[in-house]
Structures are given as structure tokens and as C-alpha cells.
């Protein structure tokens, strides 16, 4: 990529920093230059977030309809999957899958709920009382 072709199209990252890139100068040698961003990347990131938001909305509906427990909603809201949530709570994936069922969730002890609440950065009450 030639230096003059380096895109300067600001995205989310440009709020924090410009990116360092390796580009070819007029003499055909490599040097570094700073980029504010590139729309192609920005759109890829945007489409990933559209997908995340869709998943969160579906999770919300599933909780509202009584199909899933609040754990499911907050897991999606925090961009987690079962493996990541297992890491943050210390619960095995097998148990987390059970806790996604509203019937099992309603019988969970406060101690277990506490672990989920901590993983999601919310209080036990917020977790328990989430209705979708």
C-alpha cells in the first residue's frame, strides 16, 4: 500500500488513537504512517454489532416468553458464550445449560446467583427480577 492510499476514515477506534501502518513512500521504501481508520473495517465492526444486538433482543424476548432464564439474556448482553461464562463463574458448561431453564433458575441459591451477578456486573436483585 502506498502512503497516499492510506485511508483516513474515522471509526470507533479514532476516539482513542490513530493506528500505525506500514506503507510505501515515494522512494518505494517502507515507512510508518498513521491512519484514522477505514470504512471497510468500520462496516465489518458495525455489522458484528448489529448481530450482537439482534441476539440480545432475541434473548430478551425468550426471557419475556418464559423460554429462557435471565442468565441467558445477560450472557448475550455481555457478549459471552457458555465457555466464557463458565470461566467467569467457575460453573461447568453442563450446569450453566441447566441454569438457562427458567424452572431450574428459580430454584438457584443466592450463592450461585451471586456468581452470575458478579460475572455480569449486576446485583443479584437485578438478575432475579429481570423479566425481559
Amino acid at each position: 500500500m502506498k502512503k497516499e492510499d492510506l485511508p483516513q476514515e474515522p471509526g470507533a477506534l479514532s476516539r482513542l488513537t490513530r493506528e500505525l501502518c506500514y506503507v510505501k513512500n515515494e522512494d518505494g521504501k517502507y515507512e510508518t504512517a498513521l491512519s484514522k481508520g477505514w470504512d471497510i473495517k468500520k462496516e465489518a465492526l458495525d455489522s458484528a454489532w448489529v448481530e450482537v444486538n439482534d441476539r440480545v433482543e432475541e434473548a430478551r424476548k425468550a426471557v419475556a416468553n418464559g423460554e429462557k432464564s435471565p442468565v441467558y439474556y445477560f450472557m448475550e448482553l455481555n457478549l459471552m458464550d457458555l465457555a466464557v461464562l463458565s470461566g467467569y463463574t467457575g460453573f461447568f458448561v453442563f450446569f450453566i445449560k441447566r441454569h438457562l431453564k427458567p424452572s431450574v433458575f428459580s430454584s438457584l441459591s443466592d450463592k450461585k446467583l451471586e456468581k452470575y451477578a458478579k460475572a455480569f456486573d449486576i446485583t443479584v436483585d437485578e438478575l432475579k427480577n429481570f423479566k425481559g
Binding site: E19, Y22, K41, A44, A48
Partner: peptide, 20 residues
């Protein structure tokens, strides 16, 4: 989109790695 993010985003930079 994920390929592009893996390829061009900060900290991964596939195209960028080739220039590097």
C-alpha cells in the same frame, strides 16, 4: 465480516501483517 475484522483490525491485521 469476521474475516475482515480478523484481517484488518487492530492487533490482528492480516493485510497489515503482510506489509509488516
Amino acid at each position: 465480516g469476521q474475516i475482515v475484522r480478523m484481517q484488518e483490525e487492530i492487533g490482528t491485521g492480516g493485510g497489515g501483517f503482510r506489509f509488516l
